[in-house]
Computed example of a mutant assay.
Amino acid sequence: MPWFAKIEEGIVEKAVFDRYVPAHKAYVQELIAKGHQARSGYWGERGGGMMLFLADSLEEAQAIVEGDPLVKNRCVKYCLHEWRVVIE
């Protein structure tokens, strides 16, 4: 399964964004339980963040991203990339 990275930037006020963080965390936990090995975090030096996860295809990865509460509630804009691991 290839790795994918959703790199995001917040586009709403922090109070609005923070309202959806618990749902986002629960969603990431669901992805982990389903075997996607998801990890989510934010940049320490600036706004925005990233979610890494495994998916069978770009189409599945896109569906996973579209299911994220931060995306569904239009809290972030994002780019989705396949991350090709060179060294494990």
Score class of each variant (00 low, 15 high):
Lys34His: 11
His24Asp: 05
Gly48Ile: 10
Leu70His: 04
Val86Met: 13
His24Arg: 07
Glu45Val: 07
Gly48Met: 11
Pro2Ala: 13
Asp56His: 12
Ile64Trp: 03
Gly49Phe: 12
Ile87Gln: 11
Arg39Cys: 12
Arg19Phe: 00
Gln62Phe: 03
Ala33Met: 05
His81Gln: 11
Glu9Met: 11
Ile64His: 03
Lys72Gly: 00
His81Leu: 12
Ala23Asn: 03
Lys25Asn: 11
Leu58Lys: 09
Glu60Cys: 12
Val76Arg: 09
Ile87Met: 10
Lys6Leu: 10
Trp43Cys: 08
Ala26Cys: 04
Ala23His: 03
Glu9Pro: 01
Tyr27Pro: 05
Glu30Val: 02
Ala33Ile: 03
Cys79Ile: 15
Ala26Lys: 15
Val65Cys: 08
Glu8Lys: 01
Gly47Tyr: 05
Asp68Cys: 01
Val28Trp: 03
Gln37Phe: 05
Glu30Asp: 14
Ala38Asn: 05
Tyr78Trp: 15
Cys75Asn: 06
Ala15Met: 01
Met51Asp: 07
Gly35Cys: 09
Val71Leu: 01
Lys72Phe: 00
Tyr78Cys: 11
Ile11Pro: 05
Lys6Ser: 02
Val86Thr: 14
Lys14Trp: 06
Ala15Val: 02
Pro2Trp: 07
Leu70Asn: 02
Arg84Asp: 10
Lys34Tyr: 05
Val28Cys: 04
Glu45Gly: 10
Lys34Met: 09
His36Gln: 08
Gln29His: 08
Phe53Asn: 06
His36Arg: 13
Gly35Val: 09
Ile32Ser: 01
Ala38Leu: 05
Tyr20Cys: 02
Tyr20Ala: 01
Arg84Ser: 13
Val85Ser: 12
Glu82His: 08
Ala55Cys: 06
His24Ser: 07
Lys25Thr: 07
Leu52Val: 10
Cys79Trp: 15
Arg84Lys: 15
Gly35Leu: 12
His36Tyr: 13
Ala55Thr: 05
Trp3Pro: 00
Leu52Gln: 09
Cys75Pro: 12
His36Asn: 12
Gln37Val: 00
Ile11Met: 10
Met1Ser: 09
